[in-house]
Design a binder for these strands. Structure first.
Lengths: 136, 136
DNA sequence: CATTAATTTGCAAAAAAGTCGCAATTAGAT
DNA sequence: ATCTAATTGCGACTTTTTTGCAAATTAATG
């Protein structure tokens, strides 16, 4: 997936640099993270300003997108760089489970078409109480 | 809907105050707005700090929730205080259309059940190019 | 409707998050 | 190995959000 990323950057005329690779690798390991988590994790290895610039590039190139989970703004790799999925976020323990459902996707396509909308991406966040938290 | 809101605040032991009412009314009129839009609009009528405190209360009480639309973090009233709907956001012009689709809702319920998840709420954001922007 | 206790506001100051210009460094092409 | 353009790191700065506290407001009570 990382080579894919390098090619992708180059195809947009952007250089493959150390900070960009470090941010990308962090995102590969940490699905659904925050900007400040990236900054903290790379503290001493990459400058805040570069991380912000990198994240802003990644957003524009569709490498990452923003998600709201549990009231917090988070970022994650897009489908192009991780497998397409959505989240069930538990309001109690804060954890997120991954969901991938074909029928749901079909429905979304139908809705976009009906409106003459050319859908590029979508995201779904379900909030509630997960199975294990219901037992407490 | 506004009386509903007053009762709701009181049921949580919170006072009905002028700034809280003003923020709520603004949200009733402006579906899918930003914190800074609220601050700008109420400039001179309510202090920034109070608005932040109000919004943070509203979030905790489930009066509003956060949504990412067009890469921006936005807020809107929850289903309890506005009719249940989702958004199609245009990446070009930035506008959002409202979607309400029964079949989609049924699908989401099925998914939660399958995972033993007790869903409380959900949100869906579809990004793409709207019909009128496709013509340009 | 006057009084009171608790909540909430507005203000000012501080912390946190994000942006920008520029000299020094690095990536990639030759 | 050299060159050029892109990118980084730094520091200063702007914007956004949070906090403490005195003054004002809410809602309950007589």
């Amino acid at each position: 997936m990382c080579n894919n990323f390098k090619q992708y950057l180059r195809s947009y005329g952007l250089n493959v640099t150390v900070p960009r690779l470090k941010v990308f690798r962090f995102l590969e390991i940490n699905d659904l993270t925050t900007v400040s988590a990236v900054i903290n994790h790379l503290s001493g290895q990459a400058d805040r300003a570069s991380i912000y610039r990198t994240i802003s590039h990644f957003r524009k190139l569709g490498i990452i997108h923003d998600v709201v989970a549990g009231g917090k703004r988070m970022i994650e790799l897009t489908d192009r760089f991780s497998s397409h999925h959505h989240h069930l976020s538990c309001l109690k323990c804060g954890r997120s489970e991954v969901v991938a459902d074909h029928k749901l996707e079909t429905d979304l396509e139908r809705i976009s078409e009906k409106k003459g909308f050319r859908a590029v991406s979508h995201q779904i966040e379900i909030s509630g109480i997960c199975a294990s938290c219901q037992d407490d």
